[in-house]
Design a protein around this nucleic acid. Structure first.
Lengths: 246, 246
DNA sequence: CCGTTTAGGTTGTATATACAGGCTAAAGCA
DNA sequence: TGCTTTAGCCTGTATATACAACCTAAACGG
């Protein structure tokens, strides 16, 4: 633990204060010289910590003024992390989830690599189908680091989606996505009631908390029934109002 | 011009060498001490340049060994509006575009609706194939509002991509995206040299300037050769170290 | 000949120092 | 009072120096 370099320790300390709410958006963060005095590091070390936190979007720095906790980030990305239940509800439709698998496993080599844990460590494996008005719309295959969420097997994921449950446990700090098109396996095709040659849109999502991966999911969507949508607005511009797209 | 700090100049210099192919993936990048000798900066300044290039994924550094041009860069942020040529160049690969169609048309009902103009109004229709090291990677079908960019037919889109050209005309203010999986038409399949049952990842993008749609594009990618990736970070927090995902 | 040690290059971190430039608020002045 | 100046804090950059850790290849010894 002491192996972590000091600028990293500083970053973690400040991130922790933000995560725990001790520092709120727009709050002033200790200045470089404050950190020099309070922690004994040199100013260059404090500078690196704050500069990286700025690059990573945690704080905003203004020359001559100070460093402040960042607030409201704009960028609505296409791949915004959204709860499918909320999304369906927003369309005024009815959401239902059917749990197919909910069990503990030893992590396979692939899953261990993705979640950055040792092979064989305990993970929870979930498989569920989400329906929108009784039509299958998403097959969710998910792995959760067991130590992060020990009571996973007690949850009723037909009521609360894994995504919503995870964010209730700890603040979601990061999500990586990959999106690709692929032909589904016969089993996936069957579970999603897909037609013959229909392709799948596969979203792979890895979520992080406190700098460590906590969960990995593959989300399969029928190509004919699903679209990802999103808007992008460059920094410094207020959106005018894009509405319906093709 | 001299306003750019020296570590930035160093970064630009190295990025330029990568883009122009003078430095190829896995090539050795001048070490910190090399840069000290050749440019006269201090080692800490060289260190900052190389360290940031590493953070940004341009190079990989191995302690005790050296710094090398990164290969296999995972295609970055889907949704950030990026020029595919830059993205390919950033991977150290060679980009080429082949223009198939470049003509003026009367807007069809569908295109007129998307671009919010009257049916029959003039639009430019573009069709081109982008290649990464001679492998087709994207089929771009684009419609541009004629009044927005009257000299579209005079452009050489084999040299400057439509995306880059459009942003040079007026600042891009907004972009909407939709992503879906679909089976390509036989013609698209042929143009992208795709195998039998391979699906397509289709990105649809509508860009706005001054509150009006100016261009609409459908971007077809071979499912087996392309992945969209991106990171999402909730307000106030950002990436600590995501790397490779499945 | 082969295994071990060593020397040298490379990155990673940390510190002390210095100066430039931006911003704010207090001090000074009319 | 109201404007200007100034002092002081803050970030941004740049340099010189130092030590640790890592890796490779050459030198060495059996």
């Amino acid at each position: 633990m002491t192996a972590m370099p000091r600028y990293q320790q500083l970053k973690q300390q400040i991130i922790g204060q933000i995560s725990r709410g001790e520092l709120k958006p727009r709050d002033r963060v200790p200045s470089e010289n404050d950190l020099v005095d309070s922690t004994g590091v040199s100013r260059m070390t404090a500078n690196r910590a704050l500069r990286e936190l700025n690059d990573e979007g945690y704080v905003e720095r203004v020359a001559g003024v100070g460093t402040f906790v960042a607030d409201l980030q704009s960028a609505s990305h296409v791949l915004e992390v959204r709860n499918i239940a909320d999304e369906i509800a927003a369309r005024g439709h009815r959401h239902a989830a059917i749990v197919i698998v909910q069990e503990q496993q030893a992590a396979s080599a692939e899953v261990a690599d993705i979640l950055r844990i040792a092979q064989g460590n305990a993970v929870f494996h979930l498989l569920l189908v989400h329906r929108e008005n009784d039509t299958p719309i998403q097959l969710e295959e998910r792995y959760v680091v067991a130590t992060f969420a020990p009571d996973c097997l007690q949850q009723d994921f037909a009521r609360v989606t894994p995504s919503a449950w995870l964010s209730s446990i700890a603040p979601l700090q990061e999500a990586e996505h990959k999106v690709r098109a692929a032909m589904p396996s016969p089993e996936t095709r069957r579970r999603l009631k897909m037609a013959g040659q229909e392709p799948c849109l596969v979203v792979m999502r890895r979520t992080w908390s406190d700098g460590r991966p906590v969960s990995f999911a593959r989300l399969y969507h029928p190509g004919s029934r699903f679209e990802l949508t999103g808007n992008y607005t460059p920094p410094g511009i207020r959106k005018s109002t894009p509405e319906s797209a093709p």
